[in-house]
């Protein structure tokens, strides 16, 4: 068993109140209960002790214990196995989870992250699928031509969306509302939490359900710290993470539905597009992105999709 009152810090960059915090709090509850108080879990939401990259460095150094981190670590440590950051690849959450947890490529990603970044990988946590919001109505990829669209500073995303015809504008997230109000951008993409919390109905009319990506969170631990724990604790923590992930999944689904209703109530129009033409037009950029990956990746994507068909 652990020595008395070992502190486990868990970090996440989202502000409190979302499915991320809910999952971390569930983790805290489980661990403190099952360890009879020998572990104390401190939850840091909103990047209180550092943004994504800084927390990765803290984990690398063994200066903190755990994080519910975003996708940056795969880009940093295991870009050759990172298929889950490419838009229009996985059709549902089950396929993403299967790819990471069950395939050779997913295992390799976890292994390389440990070697290059001292990360012990535990499991992905679902984030609602991303859609786009837009001032003009978008019914097919042809309507995207020349549209000024805000995108985060992620090269693959910019490439895919430019292939679809938009004019990418890279601006920081806090400025999205202002940029739409002043007409600097006419569209952006994110999960529904973004237009809801930013009250984008004041500046946008449409939500186009492109469902192009579920960009997951990942439960990771600092390998030097993890390896120093005894096996029973490792098992208990792993189990706690899986239960917390499941709880986060449920909360995220509830929230997504809540946002959808809220957005409709506030006058936004949902356009349920056929995803196929978007996927088709984006294909060259998606292929470019996947061409750089390891040999196993293409087959493993197919296997993951096949294994979860019908979900």
């Amino acid at each position: 068993t652990a020595q008395a009152q070992d502190v486990i810090e868990v970090h996440n960059t989202m502000s409190a109140g979302g499915s991320e915090e809910a999952a971390m709090l569930r983790f805290k509850e489980i661990v403190e209960e099952r360890s009879d108080g020998s572990f104390e879990v401190n939850v840091y939401s909103g990047g209180q002790l550092g943004d994504e990259v800084e927390v990765l460095e803290l984990l690398n150094l063994g200066q903190t214990q755990m994080a519910l981190t975003g996708g940056a670590f795969m880009g940093q440590y295991a870009p050759e196995y990172d298929a889950v950051s490419v838009p229009f690849v996985f059709p549902n959450w089950g396929a993403v989870e299967h790819y990471i947890m069950e395939t050779e490529s997913g295992q390799a990603m976890q292994q390389v992250s440990r070697e290059r970044g001292n990360l012990h990988y535990i499991g992905p946590q679902m984030r609602a699928f991303r859609h786009m919001t837009s001032t003009p109505a978008i019914n097919s990829p042809d309507d995207l031509e020349g549209l000024k669209m805000r995108l985060p500073q992620i090269p693959v995303w910019v490439d895919v969306w430019e292939e679809l015809g938009v004019q990418a504008v890279v601006i920081p997230a806090p400025d999205i509302y202002l940029a739409m109000r002043t007409g600097q951008v006419e569209a952006h993409e994110n999960s529904l939490a973004s237009p809801y919390t930013r009250q984008l109905w004041e500046v946008q009319d449409h939500i186009i359900t492109t469902s192009h990506l579920s960009f997951p969170w990942h439960w990771v631990a600092s390998a030097p710290w993890w390896d120093g724990l005894d096996e029973a604790d490792q098992e208990m923590l792993t189990e706690a993470v899986h239960e917390a992930r499941q709880h986060g999944y449920e909360v995220e689904l509830e929230k997504d539905e809540f946002y959808r209703e809220g957005l409709i109530e506030n006058g936004m129009t949902f356009i349920d597009v056929d995803q196929a033409p978007f996927r088709e037009k984006a294909a060259p950029a998606v292929e470019r992105a996947l061409a750089d990956k390891a040999d196993s990746v293409a087959a493993d994507i197919e296997a993951a999709i096949a294994a979860t068909e019908g979900q």
């Binding site: 990259v53 990765l56 460095e57 690398n60 150094l61 940056a72 880009g75 940093q76 440590y77 290059r116 970044g117 500073q153 992620i154 090269p155």
Partner: peptide, 13 residues
């Protein structure tokens, strides 16, 4: 020491 520890971390753009 961070120069080598952080060698695998790189900027996004």
């Amino acid at each position: 020491s961070m120069m080598s520890v952080s060698a695998n971390n790189s900027t996004t753009a």
